[in-house]
Nucleic acid binder design. Structure first.
Lengths: 343, 343
DNA sequence: AACAGAGCTTGAGACGTTTCAACCCCCGTC
DNA sequence: GACGGGGGTTGAAACGTCTCAAGCTCTGTT
């Protein structure tokens, strides 16, 4: 792999001149510039980003950590972040924490060793020791929390309006004539989940419906587990719910599998709506009423804030907290039940 | 951010000794080692991967380029590759080509500048100039093509048994009593797609069914386009197909939307099966008969081959071509039609 | 007692860039 | 004609690490 020295030699100029041609930071006369460019082409030279990073102590790289790339929400966030990053000439390293706190720690260390200039972090569901985050920030590496906002750590964050969105979803179920509405949450260690649950309570309260704690089913982010939990609850709760609200994608899949396995029809027997898309909600039969999160925008905005921190002129402003609104896509699954033929 | 020099100073030893403690390449006496480790902890020191890479000219980083991270197949490939990479102490940079050839070129250049030690490449659907790939290999950077195998470039590859798998799918549709089977392909510039089409022909031929070229519908990888194409074909072809086989995920979604929009029931009016999962095929009504690709394994194997090339002792073996078998998951969508009530 | 050698430790050079200071050449000005 | 200065160009230092060769300190052998 040729170096800048080789290019200089072939072009018959000094190393410095080649560097000036490449970076464009200093003007170079036409004839020399052409010679250098020709040499670069001939040698198939690609500037060594590693050496450049070492010298400038700027890697132009961001890290993004998500729980699991195979959950459809996250690739969309990453695409958004990638777009913003590339607009600023940055590149993105994505890693999966598997929602495991130990792994998260290792990977944060890896990202620091890689000298990423900033980190977009979707914290692991397993409660994250607060200092994992604050130590990074103290070390001067900006962090923006994405989607999941940690408790009690002053840090920039971009997420969705959890409470409002959940409330909107549940209010819709109420408007469709449902009263006994169950909610299936993810791990309640996450503030998001707690806020979504709060939105649920709010909606019921506003409608004058008493909250039945037996209808609050705590799940996790593994569809199979959630399906098992729901099957048990569906057969064990009497009277059963006339609607179910799921607070996130993997959870929703579990609920749907449990409904199928329990032989319950949607929406005739149990109406359904969910927070977060299932990729092809419109193609389900019935199609699924969904709260659509602006995943791409979340990633994009988060990366922009991060880049601002990085490139910003040392202005250490207060942490920014951005909450983007979600949209309710009403489809068939939440439809009012066909009269009387309930359970 | 503290450097190794700072650590050496605090620990009261030479820079070399600190390096030896970190890399473990040279034994260091107990007391010195403890002092160094204490200093590392106290300073919250993280070795500078950039400097190390420069010195050793080993970045321990692989690049992986996929068309679009939001297509569910690719995150699973990436997870597999990531796992293999991490087992060897490598890290992964993922980028999206958007199936655009120009962008692919840019990104390959970026990866080269980043000095990745090897590249896992899912080539763009837009026909890729062959030399894009061969130039990289000539420069000494191993490349393993994943999922999509380019024409006429001698390069390692890991993909699925396209022909066999497609043939299996179509044979299943035939076994379910269908004769007029349409196939909807992605861009035929891809060898995969051509091989899947060939599998289709093979299946028909084996069953003694003549291939009707009017039932070969060429689509692309954008669901909306495919839906439009299918709607047109469904209303324009007479007699219509009694079954449809889609050759990939995004295409399948287009087909399903078109069937819905055309008011055709599955499988009563038109049976359906698809190559590649739709994430939640079991939850559709009807559930979707699917050829499941071993996406994770593809990524894993590909990364292993790549790592072998990288770490291998200069043994420049012949290109390896691995084709993994797919599995047919039979579900409702391919069910034999309910007698007579066709179109 | 001298020496060989094992086992640690150290110092310095090199990796490929960027960038700063210095330099050269030439033009315009006084 | 000397001088100042601007536009180009160059050379060398420095970024943080690894690693080689060399040095040091023992221990054991002769």
């Amino acid at each position: 792999m040729p170096s800048i020295k080789k290019v200089a030699e072939v072009a018959g100029v000094s190393v410095g001149t080649v560097s000036h041609v490449i970076t464009g930071s200093v003007p170079v006369s036409e004839p020399l510039r052409l010679k250098v460019q020709a040499a670069i082409r001939d040698l198939n030279y690609h500037p060594n980003h590693v050496a450049r990073s070492l010298k400038t102590s700027k890697t132009r790289t961001l890290g993004i950590m998500v729980p699991d790339l195979t959950i459809p929400f996250f690739p969309r966030v990453i695409r958004g972040a990638e777009t913003a990053a590339r607009q600023h000439g940055y590149c993105l390293i994505a890693v999966n924490s598997d929602d495991d706190c130990e792994r998260q720690k290792e990977l944060l260390s890896l990202l620091r060793s890689q000298r990423v200039e900033g980190i977009l972090l979707v914290i692991a569901a397993a409660p994250t020791p607060l200092n994992q985050i604050s130590r990074i920030i103290e070390a001067g590496i900006p962090v923006v929390c994405v989607d999941r906002v940690p408790d009690r750590v002053p840090v920039d964050s971009v997420s969705v309006e959890d409470l409002d969105a959940a409330q909107m979803g549940v209010e819709h179920l109420i408007a469709m004539g449902n009263r006994r509405i169950a909610i299936v949450t993810g791990p309640i260690t996450l503030k998001n989940e707690r806020r979504r649950l709060q939105g649920y309570r709010q909606a019921l309260q506003n409608a004058g419906i008493e909250v039945d704690e037996d209808l609050i089913w705590q799940g996790n982010l593994r569809s199979d587990d959630v399906a098992a939990i729901c099957r048990a609850r569906l057969s064990g709760t009497n009277p059963g719910p006339d609607a179910i609200f799921a607070t996130n994608g993997p959870t929703a899949l579990g609920v749907l599998r449990a409904l199928r396995d329990s032989g319950l029809r949607t929406p005739q027997d149990v109406a359904f709506a969910t927070f977060d898309e299932l990729t092809v909600d419109d193609l389900f039969t019935p199609s699924i009423t969904t709260i659509v999160q602006p995943a791409y925008d979340i990633g994009f905005r988060a990366a922009e804030i991060l880049l601002e921190r990085i490139e910003g002129e040392g202005v250490v402003a207060q942490p920014v907290t951005i909450r983007l609104p979600a949209i309710l896509e009403v489809r068939e699954s939440s439809g009012s039940r066909i009269n009387g033929q309930g359970r």
